[in-house]
Design a protein around this nucleic acid. Structure first.
Lengths: 248, 248
DNA sequence: CTATATTGTGTAAAATTTACACATTGGCGG
DNA sequence: CCGCCAATGTGTAAATTTTACACAATATAG
C-alpha cells in the first residue's frame, strides 16, 4: 500500500486488440502457487489442526500446514483436495477456500503464493495416511513456532471457522454422524471460546428443527446417557433462511 | 476433485531437512498471478461496477474487470491497490481480498491465477483517470458478455457485498460522507434487492447509535429535504458487537 | 397558496432471547 | 441392592427485539 507505479498497464499501450494471448501471458512474471490445507478436527472437547514438522532447514523444528504445489494444469480446489486425500482417509469431506497469502518474502526460498483452504473432519472417521514428519493433530490453542506465515493462516482460518459455525451447519462435519447435544454444545463452546446456557442452547437447536432423533443413546458414559441426533442436511438446504438482517 | 495422485510429495521423499530452499522453489512450476478489482460504486440508486472493454481478440467487445499482473516482489494487496490507484482518484479507499480464481483454462493465453479484490467507493469523490478501453461504470444487473471468468468473479463479489453490508458498515463507503437516511435505505434496498420498511429501517440505524446528526439538510430535492448524517466509524470500532449468535 | 412528494415519528402485538431450578436417569461403589 | 454422583431433560416469566402499520409536518413546484 505504498508507491504508485507510473508505468501504464501493458494493455493500455495499444488500443488495438491483442491477437496473441499466449505470447502475452508468457511475458508475465510467473511464480509458484501452493495450496495449504488447514484441516480442523475435534476431539476431547478440543479443536485440533493437522500439522507436520517443516522439512526446511530454516524452519527446523517448526510446525507446518499440509500443503503442496499446484500443478501446471490443476485447479486450485483440486490441488487442495489432493493434499487432503493424500493425508487423510476421506469421506464426508468439507473443503473451502479461505484466503490467499502472497507476501513476497513469506517463503525463504523465493516468491511463493499460497491459497489457504479449510477442511473440517471427524477425527474418528479418518485414518491418517502417511505419518512422516510427525503428522499429528495439534491443539489449536497452543500454536507457536510455526513455519512460514502459517500462524497467520491458521488464525485466519480459525476466525473463519468461528464465524462459519454461527451461520452455517459446519460444526456437524467435525462430529460423528450421531451426536449428543452435549457434544454439540461442547464443540460450539470450544470453538467460540465461551460458555452457553444449556437449556437455551437446546431450545435453539430444537427450534431450528434440523435435528433428527435417531432413538439411540450414548454408551460408556459414567452418567445418564444422552439421546443421539443426526443433522438433517437435506432439510437444511431446503429451509435455510435466506435473509438474516442488518446487524453490526 | 477426481483422481488421487500416488506420487508422494516432494518433501516426503527424504526426511532429512532441505537446506537449499531457493533451489526447491525454483523447481516448482510457476504461473502468472493477476489481481482483479471489482470496484463497486453507487449512483442513481443503482449499484455499479467499473469495467473496461477487454483488449484480447478472443474477447473482442466483451467487458472486463480492471486488473493487472502481480509483480515479482509485490504483495497481492499492493498490486490490487495499484490497479485501483491507476484508475480512480483514491481517497477513502476500501479494498479487501475476496477470492482467488484459478481454473486452468480461465485465460485463453495460458494458466493465469487471479486474486479478486473488492473495492467500494463513492463515484462523486473519485475522478476516473485513464479512460481508455471505454472505462465506465456499468450497472450490476445487466452484466452479460464478460471476458474470462469475470462474470463469476463479479457474482462472487456481489454476494460478498450483500453479506458484508448486513454485517459491517461497508455501505457507507459507497455514499457521500454526509447522507440522508433515504439514500442509505436506497443503497440497502438496491444491493439486497428487497424493500424495507422505512420506519423500522430508521429505528434500526438510530438504535445502533452510530449516526452523527450533522445538522444539515439535503439540497435540490423537489420535496421536503431530509436531514444529513455521518457514520461514526470510530465509535463503531469501539462498540461493535463481537458475539452475534447461532443462526442458520 | 395549493398540490405534491417525501420526511419524520409512535405504538401495540408478536416473536425471540434471556435468566434461571428442579426432577429424572443410568452408572458406579460400597 | 442401595444410595450417591453426574449428567440429562424440561418450562416459564421477564426483557428485548422485531414487525406491521398511519398520519401530521414541511419544503418545492407550479
Amino acid at each position: 500500500m505504498e508507491t504508485i507505479s507510473t508505468a501504464p498497464l501493458v494493455r493500455d499501450r495499444n488500443s488495438d486488440l491483442i491477437k496473441d494471448a499466449t505470447n502475452l501471458v508468457a511475458s508475465y512474471p510467473a511464480m509458484p502457487i501452493t495450496a495449504d490445507c488447514v484441516i480442523f478436527g475435534f476431539e476431547e472437547n478440543q479443536l485440533k489442526v493437522l500439522l507436520i514438522r517443516s522439512d526446511l532447514e530454516e524452519f527446523a523444528g517448526k510446525w507446518s500446514l499440509l500443503g503442496d504445489i499446484v500443478y501446471k494444469d490443476e485447479d486450485l480446489d483440486t490441488a487442495a483436495y489432493r493434499v487432503l486425500c493424500q493425508r487423510t482417509g476421506m469421506d464426508n469431506v468439507f473443503l473451502e477456500q479461505v484466503k490467499t497469502f502472497g507476501f513476497p518474502s513469506r517463503h525463504p526460498g523465493g516468491r511463493v503464493v499460497t491459497v489457504a483452504y479449510c477442511s473440517l473432519l471427524n477425527i474418528q472417521h479418518h485414518q491418517l495416511k502417511i505419518l512422516d514428519n510427525e503428522l499429528h493433530w495439534h491443539n489449536v490453542d497452543n500454536l507457536t513456532d510455526m513455519a512460514f506465515d502459517h500462524t497467520a493462516i491458521v488464525d485466519e482460518c480459525y476466525r473463519w471457522l468461528q464465524k462459519g459455525i454461527q451461520e452455517h451447519p459446519l460444526g456437524f462435519n467435525l462430529l460423528p454422524e450421531k451426536f449428543s447435544l452435549r457434544e454439540l454444545q461442547n464443540l460450539y463452546e470450544a470453538i467460540l471460546g465461551l460458555s452457553l446456557d444449556r437449556r437455551n442452547f437446546r431450545k435453539k437447536f430444537f427450534a431450528m428443527d434440523f435435528l433428527i432423533d435417531v432413538d439411540e443413546y450414548e454408551h460408556n458414559v459414567p452418567h445418564r446417557p444422552g439421546k443421539l441426533y443426526r443433522f438433517d442436511f437435506d432439510k437444511y438446504e431446503k429451509n435455510k433462511r435466506k435473509w438474516i438482517g442488518i446487524d453490526f
